[in-house]
Simulated assay, not measured.
Amino acid sequence: MRENKNMSKKKSLLGMSAILRTRRICVYIILIILTFLCLFPIWTLLVNMTRNNGQIATSFSFWFGNSFFENMKNVFSDDHLPVLSALGNSVVVSVFGSLLCVYFSALTAYAIEVYQFKGREIIFKFILVIMMIPTTISGVGLARMLTNMGQSDMLWPLIIPSIASPVTFFYMKQYMESVLPLEMIEAARIDGAGEFRIFNQMALPIIKPALAVQLIFAFVSNWNNFFIPALLISDNQKKTLPLIIAAVKASDPSSFDMGKVYALIGFAIIPLVIVYLFLSKFIVAGTTEGSVKG
């Protein structure tokens, strides 16, 4: 009787083990498929950067060609494509726009989270309502206003509006609720620290992971921004990289070069990869560090 119970227990354990193994295999298969779907467009871009227009138009290949340097030469030798000036414009807009966006969003979230004042909840809900408004709706009015003010073909109208980012503010507010100790703020005030010093030297180090994440998102958003620059910028020397890429894609079909397009897109992605690699270590390190060490 006892042996029968032991045998049935072993069979049940073996059955559960087989079920878990089957589920694990299914999960791995799904993850492999999702990984392939994510990496396939990137691999296709890298491969087509090394192939010429004729090869891309006539056949598909999983392996690299030998036209990479020719494609890059075509990109930088085209007098109608100021790629280097567009790169500089994109860097200026993205760097300053993302820094202003993250800093002032964190500052606003800090004020809403730490200070107790009348109308605090109303302001918070109002910002959430603004978050629901599509950028395209407000962008058209902004572009018309700036054009009437004679401020088109300038870079600052692409940077300053980045300060107002309800999505970044909301993320910072939620993150501060979970990690920011209000007792530490009160203790710093008792010790005579000013509000900006508390925010810059105590609050910001604590929310470093959130800052790094939002810097990546803000940088990518500013870097890929096409809609607002397309409404405001017509001067070739003030255009950003998305506008240059769009100009290549909209060029004369008789002179259209897919190799050049892929090379330009790949060139435009490089700064995004550098920013991610630079900030990713702060995301990991920030989860184990804070402004207070015991």
Rank of each mutant, 00 (worst) to 15 (best):
residue 1 M to P: 08
residue 2 R to T: 11
residue 7 M to I: 05
residue 11 K to Y: 09
residue 20 L to M: 14
residue 21 R to N: 14
residue 24 R to Q: 07
residue 25 I to K: 11
residue 40 F to W: 15
residue 41 P to R: 14
residue 49 M to R: 10
residue 54 G to E: 08
residue 58 T to D: 10
residue 58 T to R: 14
residue 59 S to R: 15
residue 62 F to V: 13
residue 62 F to P: 08
residue 67 S to G: 10
residue 73 K to C: 06
residue 74 N to P: 03
residue 75 V to K: 08
residue 75 V to Q: 03
residue 78 D to V: 00
residue 79 D to F: 04
residue 81 L to G: 01
residue 81 L to E: 10
residue 88 G to V: 10
residue 90 S to F: 01
residue 91 V to M: 03
residue 92 V to L: 02
residue 100 L to P: 08
residue 101 C to T: 05
residue 108 T to V: 10
residue 113 E to P: 05
residue 115 Y to K: 05
residue 124 F to S: 06
residue 140 V to I: 15
residue 141 G to P: 00
residue 150 G to P: 01
residue 154 M to C: 02
residue 157 P to M: 01
residue 168 T to Y: 00
residue 169 F to K: 02
residue 172 M to Q: 01
residue 175 Y to R: 00
residue 178 S to A: 11
residue 180 L to P: 01
residue 181 P to D: 13
residue 182 L to C: 03
residue 186 E to I: 14
residue 194 G to F: 00
residue 203 A to Q: 04
residue 208 K to W: 12
residue 212 A to F: 12
residue 218 A to E: 07
residue 238 K to Y: 09
residue 239 K to Y: 02
residue 241 L to W: 04
residue 242 P to T: 14
residue 243 L to E: 05
residue 248 V to E: 01
residue 256 F to C: 09
residue 260 K to W: 04
residue 262 Y to V: 07
residue 268 A to V: 06
residue 269 I to G: 05
residue 272 L to Q: 02
residue 278 F to I: 14
residue 279 L to H: 06
residue 279 L to N: 01
